[in-house]
Amino acid sequence: MAVPAAYPVESIDNAARILLMLLDTPALRVSDVASELGVARSTAHRMLTTLQARDLLRQDPATKAYGPGSNLAKLGLAVIGASDLRAEARPVLEKLVSDTAETAHLLVLKGTETVFIEGVEGPQVIRAALRTGHRGPAHASAAGKALLAEFDQEELRRRFPTARLRGGTARAVHSRRALEAELEKVRETGYATNIEESEPGLCAVAAAVRDRYGVAQCALAVSGPAERVVPQIEAIGRAVVAAAQELGSRLS
């Protein structure tokens, strides 16, 4: 039970109340916030846009409603803790390996890089190795593209301020425009691919893991030799999407 503050600061209290409204609904409208806090719509709008500026909230361009922003998701992930996330992901990764016979990893996005935080090695003699702790350019990885596809153009251009992208093999996208086109394909299919873009001979398929509010917290990826993965991309894609949905339900 929450304990009332002895000397409450109204602006902080209102911000906290707005964020706590997300426990009951994934989408906040200006009128709902104004009614809940007992303030004018203009005041509620300023509060929401202030939280949006800190990326604690994001506005849906179609509905104009506000939902959790990426910094709020990062805060939740920090509270959960990487060790707890790995524990939740482990059985999902094991099943993913069983379903695909390839190595599976759990990754998070840090700026413009992906970080491998957990993995289960596949059973094949020739297979992708575990890469826990490894970092790589997000635009040249399946998991990175799966997570970057969650952002709008404004956020992408904030993360990639120059038109030229560095890192990855010759097969990776090396311009922001090409990356934006690639991310549109990810949004259409629900999963991202890496066809020898991070390393020659290595391919991967990944999907974003979204929490109960629809905010991407991390990604699951399956990787292996190109000659095995490429012919099975669609089947692996379906398996990865199903696994990401299962892990998302565990994080809710």
Rank of each mutant, 00 (worst) to 15 (best):
E88I: 00
T100M: 00
L183Q: 03
T103L: 14
Y7V: 12
D99Y: 02
R164T: 13
I80E: 10
L75Y: 12
V173D: 03
V30P: 04
A219Y: 04
L147K: 08
T103C: 13
R29K: 10
E180N: 06
E182F: 00
V241C: 09
N14G: 11
G167Q: 07
H105S: 15
A82S: 12
L130H: 00
G144Y: 09
S141G: 08
F116S: 10
L85K: 00
L156E: 05
A44L: 04
A15D: 10
K74Q: 10
A82T: 13
L51I: 11
G168L: 01
L202H: 05
G201I: 07
A65L: 09
A226F: 07
E113R: 14
I236V: 13
R58T: 12
G133K: 13
A140D: 04
Q52D: 15
G81V: 03
V33L: 08
Q245F: 03
R159V: 01
Q153I: 05
L183C: 05
R41M: 02
V240I: 09
A27R: 09
D99A: 14
L251Q: 07
V92Y: 03
T162D: 14
R58Y: 02
G38D: 10
V241I: 13
T162S: 13
V222E: 13
D55C: 03
N194K: 12
G67D: 07
E197C: 11
A235W: 07
P26R: 04
P161D: 12
S141C: 01
F151E: 04
Q59C: 12
K110Q: 08
A235H: 09
D152G: 15
T50L: 11
A243Q: 02
R238A: 13
P68T: 04
R131D: 10
S70W: 06
V229A: 02
A16I: 10
E197L: 11
A104C: 06
D60G: 07
L51A: 12
L148Q: 05
S70I: 08
